[in-house]
């Protein structure tokens, strides 16, 4: 049952599977491509600031899928029908969290290689960046899922979720991008710890939000 659920969720969100699902990835690459045009081709400047730009691009790319992450299936009655079949909202949300991360985390990490080339990042920076994104994107996915569920029944939910994600993602950004500035692997560990906490919390918070939306 969980496998069928995961397959459906992945089909909904995975890049190139459906229309619009590849947008976060393209958006991420577009930001990395635009940055050298905006600040000029100074290789040193790009190498010094490029890692941070990749982090910001990742954060912004994480906002894009939120719009259809939860509200669509609430409207379709998918969670109602799952509940009748004994699938708790928390389980459905845990599966969705995994599908959401799989659909934007690994593609983003892969896209970091061309982005790093565009931004003239050295191999040490690239290594910390990849590890940081690996540790941080699950946390971004968890925050995104919570926000998407909480704002699902609101009129301006999509715009609001973007606005809410940015401050909540700040700790991940500080530790994840901070690892680059200090050249410090310990920060990556902090990012991972934050992510694990958020992953543990997200299915419960999102499940409660879906139940509350039903009563609304």
């Amino acid at each position: 049952m969980i496998a069928s659920l995961l397959r459906r969720d992945l089909a909904l969100f995975f890049p190139f599977a459906g229309s619009g699902a590849a947008l976060p990835l393209l958006f991420f690459l577009a930001v990395a491509m635009l940055y050298p045009f905006a600040v000029g081709p100074d290789a040193n400047l790009l190498a010094r600031t490029g890692g941070g730009v990749v982090w910001i691009a990742a954060l912004l790319a994480a906002i894009l899928p939120l719009d259809r992450l939860v509200s669509r299936d609430i409207e379709l009655g998918v969670f109602d029908q799952l509940k009748l079949r004994g699938v708790a909202e928390e389980s459905a949300m845990a599966v969705r969290l995994l599908a959401h991360w799989l659909s934007f985390g690994p593609p983003l990490i892969l896209a970091t290689f061309p982005a790093a080339a565009l931004l003239n990042l050295d191999s040490e920076t690239l290594r910390l960046l990849l590890l940081g994104l690996l540790a941080g994107t699950p946390g971004l996915a968890a925050i995104g899922l919570i926000i998407a569920s909480v704002t699902a029944s609101l009129r301006a939910g999509a715009a609001l979720s973007g606005l809410l994600l940015i401050p909540l993602a700040l700790p991940i950004l500080i530790f994840g991008a901070g690892a680059l500035a200090r050249n410090d692997i310990a920060s990556v560990g902090f990012t991972g710890a934050l992510s694990l906490g958020l992953i543990a919390l997200a299915p419960f918070a999102a499940g409660a939000a879906i139940r509350a939306a039903r009563e609304g």
Partner: peptide, 12 residues
């Protein structure tokens, strides 16, 4: 087990 048929059958 309960089966519910309403306006929102959860079909994509």
């Amino acid at each position: 087990a309960i089966g519910l048929l309403d306006e929102k059958p959860g079909l994509d």
